[in-house]
Design a protein around this nucleic acid. Sequence first.
DNA 1: CTCCTTGTCGTCGGTATGACGATAAACCCA
DNA 2: TGGGTTTATCGTCATACCGACGACAAGGAG
Lengths: 233, 233
Amino acid sequence: MTEYDPSSFPRVAVTVDLVVLTIRAEQLSALVVRRGEPPFKGRWALPGGFVRPAEGLDEAAVRELAEEAGLAPGVVHLEQLASYGDPRRDPRMRVVTVAYLALASDLPAPIAGGDAAHAQWRPVDALLVTSGRLAFDHAHILADAVERARSKLEYTAVATAFCTEPFTVAELRRVYEIVWGADLDPRNFHRKVTKTAGFLRPTGETTTRDGGRPAQLYQRGPNAKLNPPMLRG
Amino acid sequence: MTEYDPSSFPRVAVTVDLVVLTIRAEQLSALVVRRGEPPFKGRWALPGGFVRPAEGLDEAAVRELAEEAGLAPGVVHLEQLASYGDPRRDPRMRVVTVAYLALASDLPAPIAGGDAAHAQWRPVDALLVTSGRLAFDHAHILADAVERARSKLEYTAVATAFCTEPFTVAELRRVYEIVWGADLDPRNFHRKVTKTAGFLRPTGETTTRDGGRPAQLYQRGPNAKLNPPMLRG
DNA sequence: CTCCTTGTCGTCGGTATGACGATAAACCCA
DNA sequence: TGGGTTTATCGTCATACCGACGACAAGGAG
């Protein structure tokens, strides 16, 4: 292909969209905002916005995360998911969006930024059935994000991003069970996560918040990779 | 964040860039083109180009793959890699690029499209050292692509995309050894790939093209996932 | 004190893997 | 013709990991 001057070429708008996942009420949930303007007025959509002229993509994602979810960087795991650029995905004009996946723990952030009606946590199961139609191609993006999250739990330690520190092994296990939608054996899970070097860092403290025998409390360990991976049933 | 009219917002150019990997002369190599215009005139760059107004991202990648590498879709494995949008990555203006990773077998395509001086296969090792400076942030993109390819060999069967069908187990093993830069035990490798259901489909034919005892010939099997994964030393 | 709940350690069999020996089936060359 | 070389393929064995599951520990509720 020969060279072109970029400024002479048709331009498109570029946005970032966020799939912010957390676990609320024993359900994997995503942050959605209600659209106040057409197109798709009144429908739920993923939070997001235009990338500003002097801003990088990751930078834009971090800014949106703060603006729309009230989440400071560092508290959440944030990674680029994929880009979506079907010519007809926005009826107004050509918009290419770079989707990001964020994993957050529940407690500390009941959504700042906007009013409660504007942004809301909703279970992903409800968002992905056709009746809960999301705006644009956001159902597609959300499905990809959930799939990414599911497989990342297998070979990385990101599951801890869903937990508020300090946490117990049982709480971490619930994360896996909820995201994967399958029960895991508590004893084998305990063996796996405590014997994998660098996954967890014991605090020495214990808690009885779930009843029963006091459980050890842990923080995230230094090892991001899980090798050999955690296996689903 | 409130709503904006996309057409009132500053627009950027969107391109697709391709990292086309193959194995030539026992080395993992990438397709690069020499830039004829500034910026970075005379330097090597990844093939790519602007996304056209009515064209999706995948579509644009397929088109570029045909135009610049002479590779028809279907013969190669093609997947989206990631997007890169640092505001200063192109000195002329704001350009966001969506990078794609393509894996191709060597023999059938000595590059159509352009003249030999324009596009060339170069070993990735040479391209990634600082002396072989690629244009823009293409060294960064290439490094990400190689890393993606390396890990994809672990848990998928894409390694077969580097082979021309039909191929032998030894040829497939060379792919792993070259991409990973490590030697594998021929006997254990043979056991792994032949016992993993759906990885390979025997043709019944044999060949002696590598000397020694005749080897069974195989085609890609129906199973894209590798479970449990192939392990590096 | 007993039951209940949850956490943690141990055992056992099956499976996959790494290291490596042994055999098979072609070629080369004298 | 027959040995030597090369590569392909099968087999063996010890080890690591996993799934299933039993047993015990340590708290609370009644």
